[in-house]
């Protein structure tokens, strides 16, 4: 596969937006089980994620732009839909692909997510082995197959 050597100098960075500690832990586990060569930054809700992406506040001054965002929907303060809408309205951020991870199967939620610009909607599986297999597919598509913008890397 055509992999640009300049693009692979540093590992990809994934921003995980997830308020549940257990779910975040499972995502880390699933990435590790799939030997995914990516760094993971983790924030707890939509508002914190926007602060991260806009480098607002002392903790995010040196925040690196992620290559991919994994987004939970059901979160306090700013939920996933509001966050997705805000990112896709922001000309400086809209080019970052956002994949929704959700426990909701509702067609309404699936449609809204794509309508707002999601680049995938993954139903969180309650089975750990399914979850691991799912992250294998997700990382194969986004980190091995797809070309992502390099942002001066």
């Amino acid at each position: 596969m055509a992999i640009d050597s300049t693009a692979s100098e540093r590992p990809a960075l994934i921003l995980l937006v997830e308020d549940e500690a257990a779910d975040a832990h499972l995502v880390r586990l699933a990435l590790r089980e799939n030997s995914v060569q990516a760094d993971l930054a983790h924030v707890l809700d939509g508002r914190e994620a926007l602060a991260y992406l806009r480098r607002e506040g002392p903790s995010f001054v040196a925040a690196q732009r992620p290559d991919l965002i994994l987004l939970d929907l059901n979160m306090p303060r700013m939920d996933g839909f509001e966050f997705l809408a805000a990112v896709k309205r922001d000309a400086g951020l809209r080019g970052i692909p956002v994949v929704v991870l959700s426990t909701s199967d509702a067609e309404r939620d699936v449609r809204s997510a794509y309508h707002l610009g999601a680049a995938g909607y993954v139903a969180k599986s309650s089975s750990v082995s399914e979850l691991i297999a799912g992250f294998g597919r997700l990382s194969q598509y986004w980190l091995t197959l797809a070309r992502l913008p390099t942002h001066g890397r």
Binding site: G120, V122, L138, L148
Partner: peptide
């Protein structure tokens, strides 16, 4: 929702298409 480079090699194309299908038609809703 993704940017794929057309490969020159047919075997690479097959593996590319397999990953594409597994993501869009197996994993995601």
């Amino acid at each position: 929702a993704g940017y794929l480079i057309k490969p020159a090699d047919f075997q690479e194309l097959i593996s590319m298409v397999r990953i594409l299908g597994e993501y869009w038609f197996t994993l995601v809703r």
